[in-house]
Amino acid sequence: MTQYQITRAPQAATAVDRRAARAQIRIQDGELNRVRAAAISWRNGLGALLAGLIGFGLIKGRTDVGQLASPYDAIVGGTLAAALVAGGFSAWLLMRAAHGRPAAVSTAELVDRSTNDPETRALQDETLDSWLALRRGVLLAFGCGFLLCSAVATTWYGPPKDGPQVEARWRNGAVLCGTVESDASGALMFRTPAGTVPLDLTGIVTLRAVDTCPTGAS
């Protein structure tokens, strides 16, 4: 930490110097109260904003993450978890800035007996801590909002999960897995990753629904 030395000034003070010195003191008066008041306003405003965002996310669009294709469902889940963490820390920091730490503090920690005015130093430290908590809380709240919007947007516009698949096994040992559709003439077609083929039911041994096609079956 930088050390300082006090020596005689080269010129005498003037009335302008006195005004500057007085301003230095006056702007620190009530600084903690200003931080607290600002933190309460930010807390209320950001709380309303986040509540509005959550409400907006429920208005329309897909609401079930389980309807998303993989890996988008996991991405949305992770994003929501990150939003929850950011929102939780933000709430904690904003409450700490607005109301102080919910803990008892030893007087020895607060009152620096080595200075002529221990109260000034204690107030300065608490003001700085509250001020930093407010700034970090606001940043985290905006981060939480961004993550929530990202999660909602991905849920709405992400690719949907494929529907149930059908696995067909033929007498000759061939296995196909895909979705069953009908063509323009009404004939059943089997759509697989390898292509679409007519579905010949005469030689099928088993036909069962599966959530996902096993690798290698097409």
């Binding site: 050390q3 300082y4 030395q5 020596t7």
Partner: peptide, 11 residues
């Protein structure tokens, strides 16, 4: 009372 001082960093 008010006055000026010189404050200089030493380290």
């Amino acid at each position: 009372a008010y006055w000026n001082i010189t404050l200089s960093a030493t380290t």
